[in-house]
């Protein structure tokens, strides 16, 4: 009853392939585009922005009204994000808090797509003639790096804006090793620069890869669990072992789904908190 290796491989590969305008053979190719990632990113962005904007308009319409339902939920998130930002950053930059809210909600929605049954949307897409569909934007390196590189650009921008170009350069070259002796200090500069640039560049990379790794692994578990009944399909209902396998798959998928619910929340939270921390550090003088 075991599935043929090629069938398993094909199934997994199908879940790893993006819906692109043309096959991508090299690691970097800026003429290729992942339609699915773009589509779901924009869809979730509209979902987030639209629902929050509706609440914002209702909230701004009158403070006399008692908030209830979705408005309370949104206000709870906003207040929570606000307190997270205030814990770390005490300055006056008015970008950080909205940025944190955007990241938390958007990344959470990205990750939440992982909880949609793995084959549901790809099968629907197949029925309308799309060969592949990857529904989780945070399992696309472009998706996660799109976030972390934007954060990185903001980090650099605010570092230079707050400390000045020279201050930012000094931060990169005069730490962690410093000396009162000018000559020794001059020797330290390249070493410091090397260390500090690695530290700096590691931030967006780790930010993106941490999220990507966790969600990708989670999706892969769902795919592997789906393999349990892959070859049986409806024929599984004919035998007792088929029923047992299906039950096993259902129980395991549910258990992993519950656990994954925790992971997607934590990953969104970590991404948000680290962004706040990095931007707060960009505002700090040494």
């Amino acid at each position: 009853m075991a599935a043929a290796p090629s069938q398993i491989g094909g199934y997994i590969l199908e879940h790893l392939t993006f819906l692109t305008n043309k096959p991508q053979t090299t690691l970097v190719n800026f003429t290729v585009i992942d339609y699915d990632t773009v589509f779901f990113s924009v869809l979730l962005a509209v979902l987030f922005a639209g629902s929050f904007y509706m609440v914002a308009r209702r909230a701004a319409a009158g403070t006399d009204r008692v908030p209830r339902g979705f408005q309370s939920f949104v206000e709870m998130i906003v207040e929570w994000v606000d307190s997270q930002v205030k814990d770390v950053y005490h300055g006056t930059n008015r970008l950080i808090a909205p940025l944190a809210l955007t990241i938390f909600c958007w990344v959470y929605l990205f990750n939440f797509m992982d909880l949609v049954p793995v084959d549901l949307l790809p099968d629907i897409a197949k029925s309308v003639g799309l060969a592949h569909l990857k529904v989780v934007p945070s399992t696309d390196l472009n998706g996660v790096f799109g976030l972390s590189l934007t954060v990185f650009v903001l980090m650099i921008f605010y570092s230079i804006k707050v400390k000045g170009p020279l201050g930012f350069l000094a931060e990169l070259t005069l730490h962690p090793f410093s000396s009162k002796n000018k000559l020794v200090q001059a020797l330290f500069v390249p070493v410091n620069f090397l260390l500090e640039s690695v530290t700096l560049i590691a931030r967006p990379v780790s930010l993106a890869l941490r999220l990507f790794g966790n969600i990708f692994a989670g999706e892969m578990i769902f795919v592997l669990l789906a393999l349990l009944t892959l070859v049986h399909s409806w024929a599984a209902l004919a035998s007792l072992s088929g029923w047992a396998l299906m039950l096993l798959q259902a129980v395991l998928t549910f258990a992993w789904g519950v656990f994954h619910l925790l992971i997607i929340t934590i990953q969104a939270f970590i991404f948000m908190v680290l962004t706040i921390v990095y931007l707060a550090m960009a505002h700090e003088h040494h």
């Binding site: 090299t26 800026f30 290729v32 914002a56 909205p98 940025l99 955007t102 998706g143 799109g146 590189l149």
Partner: peptide, 24 residues
């Protein structure tokens, strides 16, 4: 793989940040 999606993603993100900051 890294492709044009990255740039689009950054642009969408930037617009989303601006929108949240301005209207939400």
């Amino acid at each position: 793989h890294i492709n044009l999606t990255l740039v689009i993603q950054m642009a969408v993100f930037a617009v989303l940040i601006w929108f949240t900051m301005k209207f939400v």
